[in-house]
């Protein structure tokens, strides 16, 4: 198992939240990821995920925030963009021709979807039963 040194938590958390909120905003009558327990999800993720996975997610978030210069030709981080421009950045980044960027964003999207899709209100919207708490237990004897 590969263990990497702890990532700078608050900064990575801010970047991940920024990217995930842009990825899954409230729209089409659905709650956005900001309406779910994103902080709680990130707490779990930071506590439990492998260093390699966190590194991949952090990389995706850094790309997300830093690439408006390539997507909408504005040299600002994505969180300082006006709403419409930020939306255009999101659309262009998620459909970029650069495979490595697309894959990084896909990893980010996968975990954003996990956070969003396990929210009881979201599951109810799709007629799915809420998830009980994952026990995380195993046999010790």
């Amino acid at each position: 198992m590969v263990r990497l040194p702890p990532l700078p938590g608050p900064l990575v958390r801010f970047l991940l939240k920024t990217a995930m909120r842009d990825m899954m905003p409230a729209a089409a009558g659905l709650p956005g990821i900001a309406d779910t327990d994103l902080d709680g999800f990130l707490d779990r993720l930071f506590r439990e995920a492998t260093g390699l996975l966190l590194l991949g997610l952090a990389l995706g978030a850094v790309l997300w925030v830093s690439l408006p210069i390539l997507t909408v030709y504005v040299p600002l981080p994505s969180f300082w963009l006006p709403r419409k421009l930020r939306q255009r950045h999101t659309e262009r980044l998620t459909s970029t021709r650069i495979y490595a960027v697309r894959q990084s964003v896909f990893l980010l999207k996968m975990y954003a979807c996990m956070c969003w899709g396990q929210d009881p209100a979201v599951r109810a919207r799709f007629a799915l039963a809420p998830y009980p708490v994952d026990p995380g237990t195993f046999r010790t004897t």
């Binding site: 842009d22 990825m23 899954m24 905003p25 409230a26 729209a27 089409a28 659905l30 956005g32 939306q87 999101t90 659309e91 980044l93 998620t94 459909s95 964003v105 896909f106 999207k109 996968m110 954003a112 979807c113 996990m114 899709g117």
Partner: peptide, 12 residues
Amino acid sequence: IARMAGGGAPLM
């Protein structure tokens, strides 16, 4: 849903 194309409002 992670397999669906795009992001932002069109994804939703």
